[in-house]
């Protein structure tokens, strides 16, 4: 992997009103890296994503993308939201066409339609271009959201628990779809993938960064040693996978348990767990 920095996060803190959300975050994400952010709810994963996207500004500290400070949102850094990022009043082709229109204004309408149909086919949604998001299942909608983000031709993809609402089968399919798309593009896009699922983080990521909660901070990181392409069945039965997963879980859960313990004693229970 080359060492060109994608994102750098330098001593960033962030708050919603008076509630601190992130404290002193330091993180470097290489260009082309697939980074998974792992953390419980309230660890500021989403806030960190929004800061990387430029949708929010840090209270202190600095974020750069390819060496330049992030001052606002840009089509360069595409984001897929937890709840699907499609406009419900547009067909899939129009949703993707809108992304194309803004990423490449020179395209004609006919070219955009054609290109949109290609992206839909690329995520396995051939023939659904004239449908509206409400006509699709959750899995199909999220797949369309990925087709849309491909149309942005963003060099960074910020994915905020994109598969969180899906059933295990669709989830596995979309994980494989995402890695296929990511690994076949040259140069590779920088991906920041937020999840609270340890196995998903290991399966997808080059590196897993763990966040702790209240307020959010980095509590550890692990480089994932498994070569690509990764095969789900082999990986999930390998002892190394489980050792890594246990290490991360122990670290992650000790943090969570500590907080649960605090919460219990705080609510007046005489004995903690």
């Amino acid at each position: 992997m080359n060492a060109a920095p994608g994102f750098t996060v330098e001593d960033v803190s962030f708050a919603y009103g008076n509630t601190p959300v992130l404290q002193h975050i330091n993180l470097t994400i290489q260009a082309g890296e697939f980074l998974c952010l792992l953390g419980p709810s309230g660890s500021g994963k989403t806030a960190l994503q929004r800061l990387l996207a430029g949708l929010e500004r840090p209270a202190s500290g600095r974020i750069t993308w390819r060496g330049a400070a992030v001052t606002g949102p840009s089509i360069e850094r595409g984001m897929v939201f937890q709840d699907y990022s499609l406009y419900p009043w547009m067909t899939l082709v129009d949703n993707i066409g809108l992304a194309l229109e803004l990423s490449d204004p020179s395209l004609t309408k006919a070219m955009r339609r054609e290109r949109a149909a290609e992206y839909l086919a690329a995520v396995g949604l051939q023939g659904t271009g004239r449908q509206y998001p409400f006509e699709l299942s959750g899995g199909m909608r999220q797949r369309a959201a990925i087709a849309r983000i491909l149309a942005l031709s963003s060099s960074a993809l910020l994915l905020d628990e994109p598969f969180g609402a899906l059933d295990p089968l669709n989830r596995a399919r979309l994980q494989d779809l995402l890695t296929a798309i990511w690994s076949q593009a040259t140069p590779r896009r920088t991906v920041v993938f937020v999840t609270h699922d340890v196995e998903e983080a290991i399966y997808l990521g080059d590196r897993v960064v763990m966040l702790g909660s209240s307020p959010g901070r980095v509590i550890g990181e692990v480089a994932v040693p498994f070569p690509r392409p990764r095969r789900r069945r082999e990986l999930f039965t390998a002892p190394e996978f489980h050792r890594l997963s246990d290490t991360i879980s122990d670290h992650y859960h000790s943090e969570v348990l500590e907080h649960i313990h605090e919460a219990w004693t705080m609510t007046g229970l005489k004995e903690g767990i």
Binding site: E118, A121, A122, V123, G124, L125, Q126, G127, T128, R130, Q131, Y132, E135, L136, S137, M140, R143, R173, D176, L177, A180, I181, Q184
Partner: peptide, 19 residues
Amino acid sequence: MIEDTIASLVQVPVSRPRE
């Protein structure tokens, strides 16, 4: 091609479009 690889990963039930 990439399309074929990916298309083979996913099978989509296409529902009837609403008029």
